[in-house]
Design a protein around this nucleic acid. Structure first.
Length: 417
DNA sequence: TCTGGGGTCCTAGGACCC
DNA sequence: TCTGGGGTCCTAGGACCC
């Protein structure tokens, strides 16, 4: 039998901020999102003050002041760096590791020797705290979903927790409120509570067919996982399927040119992220929103998907597409508060090398436009694309497009209006 | 004008996660 | 006045082909 460990950094961002400020130990600490908009991390002391996750900062300013809460703007470079250090310590314990998020990892064990597992868990805690300075909790169980539950126990006990027999499993499920199950969000929780399903134990006692019908295959998988049947294995593929850069602005934008400038930098950031994982994208999606919280203002929200002329991770190409997309979506008279660029259709870069574009320079724009004109003949929504593979031989391929896509850059100006 | 069915691909949107 | 950002998976339904 195999076992999963779930390793979770306690209050990760808050712990990071505390790392080099030992005088903050025992004091309430919160970390705020971009533009210091809302609370995205809290130390235990801040949680105890009743500051909820996602709380708008302006609503809690008084409490921050009165209770002496130490408030930080987020510093993702720091968190990313510390995360990498934590993960490299964990990797010493096993190569069978899935880095699930910035502050969590699963490790799969091919044995279930409880004492060895406990020793490993304690040693992880000791090493990560001593070498990196971040406190972690470790839960062990036969499946991923159960290891999540075990971790919740571990956090409460400030220790390592192992669910290794039927009695412990049932006890844990009975203890866990249905809304705290990993994979049960607000919508499902509401639905289940209406049926008097209150705990994880109630949930696993539902019939398979009801769960399948009402909560899709994922809900059923989750149920089986909680029953101790292996339905979710380690997922070690780390390449992203989509990459996003989105921001709320600190003020409302009313000019198209302002939006264009911001969005061009978003596209540039996406291109950098693509290159970092050595891949190209085939599609770029752009959205613009007004401020959804302002019910007193007219609302506008729109997105457009654009097929790139060829697989690319070029900042210049993506920024140019994004700028044109903004011009297509922009309507005078609204106050824009949020925009984003999401690239998808991601493929490994080695499958497609456009060598003539190896170095970016403005002349490539002209080259690409020419290529568009020459090769992208739209006929019956089918495009003929010319592309060059790694050996520099040109190949033609056909591609079907949805009506929402366009590769004709000038026509972007009418898409979405 | 009426009359099919099966398969695949694609997309929007909804649910979830940290 | 001020309200985050970055991801994943699944499904229904339409388009299209034979």
């Amino acid at each position: 039998m195999s076992m999963f460990a779930l390793i979770d950094c306690n209050n990760f961002y808050a712990s990071c901020e505390r790392l080099f400020r030992p005088h903050l130990n025992g004091k309430p600490v919160v970390v705020l999102s971009n533009n210091d908009g809302c609370v995205i991390a809290r130390s235990n002391e801040a949680k105890a003050l009743g500051i909820p996750m996602g709380a708008p900062a302006f609503e809690y300013e008084k409490i921050f002041l009165e209770q002496g809460v130490h408030v930080f703007s987020s510093n993702y470079a720091l968190y990313g760096d510390l995360s990498a250090r934590v993960m490299s310590v964990l990797q010493e314990f096993s190569p069978d590791i899935e880095i699930y998020s910035i502050d969590e990892a699963f490790i799969k064990y091919d044995h279930c020797d409880v004492e060895r597992l406990r020793a490993d868990g304690l040693e992880m805690r000791r090493r990560v705290f001593e070498w990196v300075g971040i406190p972690i909790s470790v839960g062990f169980a036969p499946t991923k979903a159960l290891s999540k539950v075990a971790k919740k126990f571990a956090t409460q006990l400030a220790n390592v927790h192992i669910i290794h027999n039927e009695e412990m499993r049932l006890k844990a499920l009975k203890w866990l409120p249905v809304e705290d199950i990993w994979g049960i969000g607000r919508q499902y929780a509401r639905k289940l509570q209406a049926l008097n399903i209150k705990t994880a134990l109630d949930y696993v006692q539902l019939s398979d067919s009801w769960v399948r019908r009402n909560m899709t295959i994922q809900g059923l998988r989750l149920k089986h996982d909680l029953e101790g049947k292996l339905t979710m294995d380690l997922d070690t593929v780390s390449d992203k399927k989509s990459i996003a850069t989105t921001r709320s602005f600190d003020k409302m934008y009313t000019e198209c040119s302002q939006l264009e400038e911001r969005v061009a930098t978003f596209a540039h950031t996406c291109a950098e992220k693509l290159r970092r994982q050595n891949s190209h994208c085939n599609m770029l999606m752009l959205f613009v929103h007004t401020n959804g919280h302002r019910k007193d203002l007219p609302q506008y929200s729109r997105n457009v998907v654009i097929k790139t002329p060829f697989p690319t991770s070029s900042s210049i190409v993506l920024a140019d597409i994004a700028r044109k997309a903004v011009r297509a979506l922009f309507i005078e008279g609204y106050q824009y508060k949020k925009a984003g660029v999401i690239v998808s259709g991601i493929v490994p870069a080695e499958n497609f090398q456009l060598n003539i574009f190896a170095n970016e320079s403005p002349k490539h724009i002209t080259l690409m436009k020419t290529m568009d004109k020459l090769n992208h003949t739209v006929a019956n929504k089918t495009l003929k694309l010319a592309s060059q593979d790694a050996s520099r031989t040109w190949k033609m391929r056909q591609e079907k497009l949805s009506p929402n896509y366009t590769t004709d850059w000038d026509s972007i100006l009418v898409v979405g209006k």
